[in-house]
Structure formats: structure tokens, C-alpha cells
Amino acid sequence: MTTTKQTFSFPQSQGVPPQVGPFAHATQWGNLLFITGQMPTDPATGAVVGDDIVTQATQVRKNLEAVLAQFGLTFDDALMVRIYLTSFEDYAAFNTAYASWFKGPLPSRTCVGVTGLAVGAIVEIDLIAGIANG
């Protein structure tokens, strides 16, 4: 079986924020979809939304959902989620918001503390989703 890599970038008109670096929004390899870390930026303006963890995490979720939607997927298709937080003081509040994002079983997850993120964000999230055989 031959598997090829396909990369995808989406315009802001599809609800996906503009790229802030040289990357694709998503890369598909077989039935796996790797989604680039999303920031808490408004797709229309590129500006960071909010200054608290819940507001920023909510915008990151919306941005990830916009990419997932391009493939007919939702958060319940996530297999692995990686979260970057600039302050672990936000950990509990983030977890409360995050747990509400899923209807089915939770995916595997890693949460990493970092000293800074692009665009001055306090949270960034990337994920790997599975694409079911139709």
C-alpha cells in the first residue's frame, strides 16, 4: 500500500486564521490528519482574541474546528491533542473548558508549559485526528 503526504492550507473565508509562518494548516498521511497548532486569533482580523485562558482556548477550539470541518471531522475524531500553556496557573481553568469540547471518549493528550508563544498568545493547541474509512 502506497501512502502519500498531502498538505492543505485554507483561506480566511473558510473560517481559518491566516498563517503566521511557513506551514500548512493540515497534513494528511493515510487516515491520519495532523493539524498545525492553532492560536487564539480571529480569522477575520488575525488579532489575538481575549487575554484570559478560557477566552483564548475557546478561540483556539473554534480555529481547530474550522480546519477539522474542511475534512468533515469534529473534535471527537481527535486521537491526540497537544496543548501549550504559558502559565500552569491556567491549568485547572483550561481543563474545565477543554473537557466540554468532546462528546465521546477523550483523546490522548499532552500539556506542555512554555515560556512564550507566537503572537503573544497564552495557549496553542495542535492535534492528530483519524479519518474513518468511508
Rank of each mutant, 00 (worst) to 15 (best):
M1E: 07
T2Q: 05
T4C: 06
K5H: 06
K5L: 07
K5T: 08
Q6D: 06
Q6Y: 03
Q6R: 05
T7M: 04
T7N: 05
S9E: 07
S9G: 06
S9F: 06
P11I: 05
Q12D: 08
Q12Y: 07
Q12R: 11
S13F: 04
Q14S: 10
V16H: 10
P18T: 03
Q19L: 14
Q19P: 10
Q19A: 15
Q19H: 13
P22A: 15
A24E: 10
A24Q: 03
H25D: 15
H25R: 11
A26S: 04
A26F: 01
T27F: 11
T27M: 14
Q28P: 11
Q28G: 13
W29D: 14
W29F: 14
W29S: 14
N31I: 02
N31F: 03
N31E: 13
F34L: 15
F34V: 14
I35K: 09
I35W: 05
T36V: 13
T36K: 15
G37L: 13
Q38V: 02
Q38D: 03
Q38H: 01
M39K: 14
P43H: 15
A44C: 12
G46Y: 11
A47I: 11
G50D: 01
G50S: 03
I53C: 08
I53W: 02
I53N: 02
V54L: 11
Q56E: 00
A57M: 04
T58D: 12
Q59R: 09
Q59N: 03
V60L: 04
R61F: 05
K62S: 12
N63S: 12
N63L: 10
L64Y: 04
A66D: 02
A66F: 06
A69T: 03
Q70E: 10
Q70L: 09
F71M: 02
F71K: 02
G72E: 01
L73S: 00
F75E: 05
F75S: 03
F75N: 08
D76Y: 06
D76W: 07
A78P: 03
M80V: 07
V81T: 05
V81G: 03
V81N: 03
V81F: 05
R82I: 04
L85V: 00
L85Q: 01
T86W: 00
T86F: 00
S87Y: 00
F88L: 09
F88A: 00
E89H: 07
D90R: 04
D90V: 04
Y91P: 05
A93H: 06
N95D: 09
N95S: 10
T96H: 12
A97Q: 10
Y98E: 11
Y98S: 08
A99T: 14
S100M: 09
W101D: 05
W101S: 02
P105M: 09
P105I: 06
P105D: 13
L106M: 12
S108Q: 13
R109S: 12
R109L: 11
T110N: 11
C111L: 12
V114C: 00
T115H: 08
L117A: 02
A118P: 12
V119L: 14
V123M: 01
V123Y: 00
V123T: 04
E124A: 15
D126L: 09
L127A: 03
A129F: 02
A129Q: 01
G130T: 03
I131K: 13
I131V: 09
A132W: 02
A132K: 09
